[in-house]
């Protein structure tokens, strides 16, 4: 048994190359990026070709994925529709998060209901409104908005014969997001909501999201995108404050507040400012718990699923966290000083 004289940090940008290094025993710690990698590590361990342990789905990562609707649409019909909380709740009811985890994340991940990342234990709360997968309930809510009958093609229409339709885009090349978007589209189309899904270039997506025209309107209908989470909710103020540059659903022009603002948006803005200017930890938690409740209730961003954190390590390592202490923020060991090699 020996404490480490030195350790090497290998920077391997490619996910498959990272896996190959761990499988070859050339890296001591590793984090499997997806279910396929987890399976490969497990297979190696079971075949006795690698003396290692892996902790699949032990936690989720800080990343969040959500669908955002455009409240600044040039089409007044769509703008009005997207601003209805009933519409957004109906869309939440159409999200089959179980399938999303199964298909998009290979069974490894957790459903997300509110904006604070699940590993962020200091502020995260699970006690929020959850509009779970329920197409019947979605149909009821849409009926309350006037979409009571279906046209000849099977799409929901309102009394004026307007079809309930929108485009959903996400950035090309992100397999997880592309699959989540497809699952949402398929479920929505089953009940008669005409969702057209298309992956587009990332920079084009950012332009559509963040660059309103001079009159304040934006082009997109709905975007599935993710933001990196942090351990301090106030770091995401640009998303939640009214004049924020990432107030994605209802964006103001030139750093100003949006023209038309709902009451709950003001409340979120206030809570964010209070959270960012309070030092007392208990009060901070209270503020952010309320913040999560307001967001989950009103769904300005409709959260989908959080990908799993699947750390792995060679069994020759000691001085690491036991299973129950591993988390995606700190990792498998608090400090390298505690780590030793058994052989």
């Amino acid at each position: 048994m020996a404490y480490l004289e030195r350790y090497t940090v290998q920077i391997v940008p490619d996910l498959n190359a990272q896996l190959a290094r761990f499988l070859a025993g050339e890296a001591d710690v590793f984090s499997a990026a997806n279910a396929d990698q987890v399976a490969q590590v497990l297979e190696r361990i079971r075949a006795n070709r690698l003396r290692a342990e892996i902790f699949p789905n032990i936690d989720v990562t800080l990343a969040t994925n959500f669908i955002v609707f455009n409240w600044n649409h040039k089409d007044p019909f769509k703008e009005n529709l997207f601003r209805q909380v009933k519409f957004r709740r109906a869309m939440a009811h159409l999200m089959d998060k179980k399938s999303m985890i199964e298909v998009a994340l290979g069974g490894l991940g957790q459903p997300q209901w509110s904006p604070i990342s699940i590993p962020n234990k200091a502020f995260f709360t699970d006690d929020v409104a959850k509009f779970e997968f329920n197409p019947q309930r979605a149909l009821q809510l849409l009926a309350e908005l006037g979409f009571r009958s279906k046209n000849r093609d099977g799409w929901l229409v309102n009394a004026e014969g307007k079809v309930l339709e929108f485009n959903l885009v996400t950035n090309q090349g992100n397999n997880v997001r592309e699959r989540i978007a497809q699952i949402f589209r398929d479920e929505a189309r089953k009940v008669g909501v005409k969702v057209e899904y298309r992956p587009i270039d990332f920079n084009e997506l950012v332009r559509q999201l963040t660059s309103p025209a001079a009159d304040g309107t934006r082009e997109f209908d709905a975007i599935l995108i993710g933001l990196t989470g942090g351990i301090e909710p106030a770091f995401a103020r640009n998303v939640w404050q009214l004049n924020g540059s990432l107030h994605a659903w209802n964006l103001g022009v030139g750093g100003k507040n949006p023209a038309k603002v709902e009451a709950f948006e003001v409340l979120i803005d206030t809570l964010m400012t209070r959270g960012a200017t309070t030092l007392d930890q208990a009060q901070r938690r209270q503020i952010y718990v309320q913040f999560q409740k307001v967001v989950a209730e009103n769904l300005p961003l409709i959260y989908t699923v959080a990908p799993a954190y699947n750390p792995a390590r060679l069994t020759r390592l000691g001085g690491m966290f036991p299973k129950e202490q591993i988390n995606s923020i700190v990792g498998q060991a608090p400090y390298i000083e505690t780590v030793f090699a058994k052989e």
């Binding site: 950012v206 332009r207 963040t210 995108i225 770091f235 640009n238 990432l246 750093g255």
Partner: peptide, 18 residues
Amino acid sequence: LAPGDFVTRLELDPTQDR
């Protein structure tokens, strides 16, 4: 001609303000 520039991806970082 490609949409966006080098800074575009930072615009989706919640910690970066205008």
